[in-house]
C-alpha cells in the first residue's frame, strides 16, 4: 500500500507544477534577498544614533505574526483602499493580484522581500561588526580599494553568518505557507499554490492522508538535499583564504 502512495505522489502532475513553482519562488527569493541584505548592511552606519534607528527599523517587519502580515497586505494591495494597489494604479497599470497570476507573483515577491530582507541585513551587519578594526587598518596601509576590502576581507569574514542566512531563507521560503495562503489563497487558479499549500489541500481538503504523508517525506528530503548542497558549497568556497 505504502509504495502505491509514493507512486501516486510521484506521478501527480499538479504536484510537479507546485514543485517547479516552489523552486522558482525560492530561487527568486534568494537571488533578490541575499545581495540586497548584504548591500543594506554595508550601507548602515557604524556609529552614532543612526545605528540604533537602523536596527530597530529593520526589525519591525520581522516581528509581526505571519498570518497578520498576509491580512495587512490584503488591504495594503487593494487597488481601491490600499496604498500599494492605489499607487500602482496611479501609474496607469490596472493592478489586481486576485485576477492576474503575474500580479499575484509580483505582490508575493514584494511582500516576501519586504518581510525577510531585514533578516539577511541584520545577520550580515552583525557579521560585519565582528571584523577587527586591524583588518581595515592593514587594508588602508596597502591602499586597497573598497571592492578589494569587500571581496577579500568582508565577504570571507561574513561567510558564517551568510551561510546561516542563506539556509534560513531557503528553508523558510521553501516551506512558506501562511503569507501566500492568507494573501492569495493559492490563486488565481493554481498560480501561487506552493508545495505546502498543495500539501494541506491534499491532507485536509481531500483527506488523502496516505499520499500526503508520502509527499511530506519527499518534501523533507528535497529541503534536506538542497540545504546540504548549499552547506557543502559554502563550506568549501574560498577555503584557506581566511583562516
Amino acid at each position: 500500500m505504502g509504495a502505491e502512495w509514493f507512486k501516486e505522489t510521484l506521478t501527480d502532475s499538479r504536484l510537479h507544477d507546485a514543485l517547479w513553482r516552489q523552486f522558482l519562488f525560492s530561487g527568486l527569493v534568494l537571488l533578490i534577498e541575499m545581495p540586497l541584505g548584504v548591500g543594506i548592511a554595508l550601507l548602515m552606519p557604524r556609529k552614532g544614533w543612526g545605528v540604533s534607528a537602523s536596527l530597530v527599523t529593520l526589525a519591525l517587519p520581522l516581528l509581526i505574526p505571519w498570518n497578520v502580515i498576509g491580512t495587512i497586505w490584503i488591504i495594503f494591495t487593494r487597488p481601491d483602499i490600499g496604498l500599494f494597489g492605489a499607487a500602482i494604479n496611479n501609474l496607469g497599470i490596472a493592478f489586481d493580484h486576485t485576477a492576474s497570476p503575474l500580479h499575484a507573483w509580483i505582490t508575493l515577491m514584494f511582500m516576501e522581500v519586504w518581510h525577510w530582507t531585514p533578516l539577511v541585513a541584520l545577520l550580515a551587519y552583525a557579521g560585519l561588526r565582528a571584523i577587527p578594526e586591524a583588518y581595515y587598518q592593514a587594508a588602508r596601509i596597502d591602499g586597497a580599494s573598497a571592492w578589494a576590502i569587500f571581496r577579500y576581507i568582508q565577504l570571507p569574514k561574513m561567510r558564517g553568518v551568510l551561510t546561516i542566512a542563506l539556509l534560513l531563507r531557503f528553508m523558510d521560503s521553501f516551506l512558506i505557507y501562511a503569507e501566500p495562503f492568507v494573501l492569495t489563497g493559492g490563486g488565481p487558479g493554481n498560480s501561487t499554490t506552493f508545495l505546502s499549500i498543495y500539501l494541506v489541500k491534499i491532507a485536509v481538503g481531500q483527506f488523502d492522508l496516505g499520499p500526503a504523508a508520502a509527499f511530506s517525506l519527499i518534501y523533507f528530503l528535497i529541503v534536506l538535499l538542497f540545504s546540504y548542497l548549499f552547506f557543502q558549497a559554502l563550506q568549501n568556497v574560498g577555503k584557506g583564504e581566511d583562516r
Binding site: L55, L63, A126
Partner: peptide, 27 residues
Amino acid sequence: AAGILTIVPGALVIWFVRNHLAKGFAL
C-alpha cells in the same frame, strides 16, 4: 491595532541589545 502592539515588545528587545550589536570586536 493588535498587529501594531505585537511589534512593541520585540522593538524593545532590539533596543536593549542594540549596543551589543553595534560594538564590534575589540582586540
